[in-house]
Design a protein around this nucleic acid. Structure first.
Length: 268
DNA sequence: ATGGCCCGTTGCACGGGA
């Protein structure tokens, strides 16, 4: 089973590019981020024509996540638990059943910029950096529950986290950015350290693997990229891992997203 | 060396992204 994550930066602007990639890559499951539409605005027909079931958790203009799956999706859950007042659509879960069941979480982790602190040196309450860190603590709680279930599960999406310096072409340029700040990377590692396997690094420890290139300043032409889209697997899912990759070539096409798809193959 | 983009909005500049 091939499972991919792809921040498409707007389903309305990226529909055809997404269809082209689906036709080539043939993922069984695609986790989408930044659909940037309400649920009713998702253009479902061409995806359903290709045999995909679709579940969405959208909102107007910003954010929004979705799951496309050639297998039936069961027990769909929308929103990250832990804050009923959080109106941002950044988390969706479902179970897909192949030879055995796999719980899948699609996520769009907050960017977190600008990084702001109060007079005591704590992340400024109400600010975007504090929202990011709070969201990650809520995610850690959900991740711990997945781990405790001792079943095949994965959490994949746009993490907006550069895990290590080798995940950026120019790490010094990101030093004070919310994607690379020590607080952000520590929060990511607290999740990882629950026992998850990050698929790309598990398969290929080489530096220079990226999943995002900014639209500005010729970043793609210079290969000035960062790796911020990740797939984290529980041990029971990691045992099934047979392949992982990044579809980098997508970034060189007309009207691309600034992210590219990242995928795993699981033997189930 | 520097700066360069793109998406959605009941838009016509701006917020948000990373």
């Amino acid at each position: 089973m091939k499972i991919a994550t792809f921040n498409i930066n707007g389903i309305k602007a990226r529909g055809q590019a997404l269809l082209d990639w689906l036709d080539e890559a043939q993922p069984d499951v695609a986790l989408l981020q930044e659909i940037k539409t309400v649920d009713e605005g998702f253009p479902a027909e061409p995806f359903e024509d290709r045999g995909y079931n679709i579940v969405t958790h959208g909102q107007k203009s910003f954010n929004g996540v979705a799951i496309l799956s050639k297998l039936p999706l069961e027990d769909v859950s929308r929103g990250l638990p832990g804050d009923d007042g959080d109106g941002q659509a950044r988390w969706i879960e479902a179970t897909v059943v192949g030879r055995r069941a796999l719980r899948i979480c699609g996520l769009y982790l907050p960017n977190g910029n600008p990084v702001e602190f109060d007079a005591d040196g704590a992340p400024l309450a109400g600010g975007k950096f504090a929202y990011k860190l709070g969201w990650m603590e809520r995610m850690r709680a959900r991740a711990a529950a997945l781990m405790a279930a001792e079943e095949p599960a994965l959490m994949a999406g746009d993490y907006n986290i550069i895990p290590q310096a080798e995940d950026a072409a120019r790490p010094e340029a990101w030093r004070d950015d919310a994607l690379f700040r020590p607080e952000s990377r520590d929060a990511y590692r607290r999740i990882l350290n629950l026992g998850f396997t990050e698929a790309i690094r598990a398969r290929d420890p080489a530096p220079g693997l990226y999943s995002f290139w900014d639209y500005q300043a010729g970043a793609w032409a210079k290969n000035n990229g960062i790796r911020i889209d990740h797939l984290l697997l529980t041990p029971q899912a990691a045992d099934l891992l047979t392949g992982a990759g990044i579809d980098k070539q997508i970034r060189g096409r007309d009207k691309p997203s600034d992210h590219v798809p990242v995928w795993v193959e699981l033997d189930l």
